[in-house]
């Protein structure tokens, strides 16, 4: 693991009206780390993820990701930044129903300007790596939950992101599919992919993360290093 900083949050505060969802959070994630963020509902986990993904802006504080200050970027720059440096997976997969699994994945590269052929080649590599090559032409509605999440992971990895953000990645999966996704995340981290996982699932955190950040009332209540199970 290198010591290069991928994420740095300095005293980040986010208010929604009178309520502070985040209250002075400072956090650093280094390249190759797998960090899990846990906490009860409403503690600010999703808000923290949104700040790091550039999906929302802090009321105060600074958000640095991959050397760029996201809180100062406009929407277009944020989109371009996400496109090139971030990958995201969600609890409900968020695949486009109208596109085949392969085209869903290729889409991420095509948005960067890659040709359809190049994007599909890269997507096929990922399908092979993730063990879903046989499902490339299937549409999302016909995929199992686990398969959909694998496709979502493939899409997130398409542009070789500096940081992979996972928001409850096993939340909508049965235990078997959840296990498979966990294995996949571990494998990815082991080959150097930086991970930030937001979850309620302690098992997921303990299996996949090397560090646990616990939030309570918008603040970091505790940080701890984990020994992967």
């Amino acid at each position: 693991m290198t010591t290069e900083t991928v994420v740095r949050l300095d005293e980040v505060r986010k208010e929604y009206g009178e309520t502070a969802a985040l209250d002075g959070v400072s956090l650093t994630i280094r390249r190759g780390e797998a960090v899990a963020v846990m906490g009860p509902s409403g503690c600010g986990k999703s808000t923290l993820l949104n700040m790091i993904a550039g999906l929302d802006r802090p009321t105060a504080g600074e958000v640095h990701v991959h050397g760029e200050r996201l809180d100062l970027m406009n929407e277009t720059k944020l989109a371009l930044f996400r496109r090139h440096h971030l990958g995201m997976i969600f609890q409900f997969f968020n695949l486009l129903d109208d596109l085949s699994a392969l085209d869903n994945v290729a889409l991420a590269a095509q948005l960067t300007g890659s040709s359809a052929a190049t994007a599909r080649r890269r997507a096929l590599e990922l399908f092979d790596e993730l063990g879903i090559a046989g499902r490339r032409d299937v549409y999302p509605a016909a995929l199992s939950g686990g398969e959909r999440q694998r496709v979502a992971v493939a899409r997130a990895l398409m542009n070789r992101p500096a940081l992979l953000l996972a928001d409850e990645p096993t939340g909508a999966l049965d235990s078997k599919a959840g296990e498979q996704v966990m294995d996949l995340l571990i494998d990815l981290n082991q080959i150097g992919q930086t991970l930030l996982i937001v979850t309620h699932d302690e098992r997921l955190a303990h299996r996949c993360a090397s560090r646990l950040v616990e939030l309570a009332d918008g603040r970091i209540a505790r940080e701890s290093t984990l020994d992967r199970v």
């Binding site: 277009t76 989109a79 930044f81 996400r82 496109r83 968020n94 948005l111």
Partner: peptide, 16 residues
């Protein structure tokens, strides 16, 4: 809405 959110999350710019 969901699709648009996803597309934006993977880097589709407002102009796109």
């Amino acid at each position: 809405r969901r699709d648009l959110g996803m597309l934006k999350s993977i880097g589709m710019t407002p102009r796109q």
